[in-house]
Amino acid sequence: MRGRAGTDGGQIALHLKGDSGFGFELNSLFGDDNVDGTDEEAFTGLRPVITYAASGFSARLGYEYQDVELVGGGAIEKEGIGAGVTFDLGEALVNLNVAWLDDQTADTEVYTYGASLVYGAFGAGVIYSETDLVAGADPEVTTVYAAYTLPLLDINNARAPRLTDDFR
């Protein structure tokens, strides 16, 4: 959950990791967005995530819910689901992700798909997103990127993650 809480709000995070490779997280954001504590813009957010990690493979599945009561009345309500897998492909690391967002206030849905490949210090990927609007054209965005990890300041383990690392 993203955001800042004022004087009458906060965040709570619970992280549970099991020996079997399964993990569970529950993150929350709640309260008042104003520093003076007048509750003029109250918000609530929950994000549970289930993870699994084994040798050469990891997976995650999450849900997010946001509800914001606006100062002048009305509300913003959003929910979404995201899932991803990461696995070794020889010396490379492959990431596949999918997400869906339902903005109930704007009556808009967003679908996003991503794939990336990391080999040593090099990485490349593609992200595709499509927004389903009530009126007008439905925008689509495709992003293609490449990356290189620079070894700076001789910091140990400052490198791209491997599945042999502890993802849990």
Rank of each mutant, 00 (worst) to 15 (best):
T105I: 01
D138H: 08
D19C: 00
E109R: 06
G23A: 14
D88H: 07
R2F: 04
L152M: 15
R47G: 03
F122A: 13
D32Q: 04
L14E: 11
G31E: 05
G80L: 04
G31I: 05
E109D: 09
Q104W: 00
G74F: 01
G56A: 15
G62L: 05
I155R: 15
V85I: 11
A53R: 12
G10S: 02
L93V: 15
E41H: 03
D19N: 14
G123R: 12
G37D: 05
D107P: 02
G114Q: 05
T38C: 11
Y119M: 05
G136V: 02
V98T: 05
D103C: 03
G23V: 09
E69T: 11
Y128R: 12
G82E: 12
I155D: 11
G73T: 12
G56C: 07
G73D: 10
G73H: 12
G31F: 07
T112Q: 09
D32K: 01
L150S: 07
A42H: 02
A160I: 02
R47P: 03
F122P: 14
E25F: 07
L150C: 05
T38K: 14
A83G: 15
V144W: 00
I76G: 07
L133E: 09
G90S: 10
A106G: 09
N27P: 03
A160S: 14
A135Y: 03
F30Y: 13
M1F: 00
G125I: 07
D36Q: 03
L26F: 13
L16R: 15
A53W: 13
G136L: 10
D154C: 01
R168D: 08
G9I: 02
L153Q: 11
M1I: 00
G18I: 06
Y119R: 09
R60P: 09
V85L: 07
G37E: 01
R4I: 11
T108F: 00
E69Y: 01
R47K: 04
S28I: 04
Q66R: 03
D166H: 14
E69S: 11
G37K: 01
A106N: 11
V98R: 06
D8C: 00
V94A: 06
D88Q: 10
M1D: 04
D32H: 03
G6S: 04
D33A: 09
N34R: 15
I50P: 01
I50N: 00
L61A: 14
G31T: 04
I76M: 02
V35R: 13
E91I: 07
D88V: 04
G82P: 01
T44R: 10
A115Y: 03
Q104C: 01
P48G: 15
L150A: 05
P161F: 07
D36N: 02
V118N: 15
A75Q: 13
A53T: 13
F57Q: 08
V35T: 12
A121D: 13
F43G: 06
A75G: 01
G125H: 01
G9L: 04
L101E: 10
G82F: 07
K78V: 03
T86N: 13
A158E: 02
A137D: 14
E130Q: 14
